[in-house]
Structures are given as C-alpha cells and as structure tokens.
C-alpha cells in the first residue's frame, strides 16, 4: 500500500509539473507538449488510483483518457496545419 501511494504522489507531482509547463510556456508547441504529457500521466494516475481504492475494474476510464488525449493531439495538429496557411499569409501581408 505504501509503495502504491508513493507512486501516486510521484505521478501527481509529475502532473503538476506538466501543468506548470502548459501554463507558463514561451512557444505554443511547449504548451501542447505540456498538455500531452499531462494527458498520458492522468491515464496512469487513474490506473494507480483504481488499485489504491481497491476497485481495479475502473480501468476503462484510463483507456478513455488515453484515447481522448490522442484525439485532442491530432485535433490540435490538424488545427495548426490548417491555420499555418493563414499565419503565413498574415506574415506575408
């Protein structure tokens, strides 16, 4: 039990750092990196919490987290590729 809670706290602090990265980032890509790391770590965190609270059959939520995090990343990249065209025009103008 002790080890589980220690890992939980470690993962929690990694999430906090990833959140800090996402909040205070110089380039936009760093923000996306922070959000991506935050997403993957939350999936792990839920798996650990499932074991900590003795109900391990809640792992479906961890799968959904990983899935939605990936979907969010692809949507962001699609958004970037789409608006990259406009920014170049703005820069050229």
């Amino acid at each position: 039990m002790l080890v589980l809670s220690a890992t939980c706290i470690a993962i929690l602090s990694v999430m906090a750092l990833a959140l800090a990265r996402a909040l205070k980032a110089d380039t936009v890509y760093d923000r996306i990196l922070g959000v991506n790391m935050f997403g993957t770590k939350t999936a792990l965190f839920i798996a650990l919490m499932g074991f900590l609270s003795g109900r391990p059959d809640f792992l479906d939520i961890a799968i959904v987290y990983a899935l939605i995090n990936f979907l969010g990343m692809i949507a962001v990249l699609r958004f970037f590729e789409y608006t990259a065209g406009d920014e170049n025009q703005e820069q050229e103008k």
């Binding site: 220690a6 890992t7 470690a10 602090s13």
Partner: peptide, 15 residues
C-alpha cells in the same frame, strides 16, 4: 513501480 515513478519524474524535470 518505484523505478517507473522515478523515470516519469526525470521526464518532468527534463521538460
């Protein structure tokens, strides 16, 4: 678990 947690901490410091 401990080693896994350690690696993710290093990753967090790395970014």
């Amino acid at each position: 678990l401990i080693v896994g947690a350690f690696f993710s901490l290093t990753g967090a410091v790395g970014i």
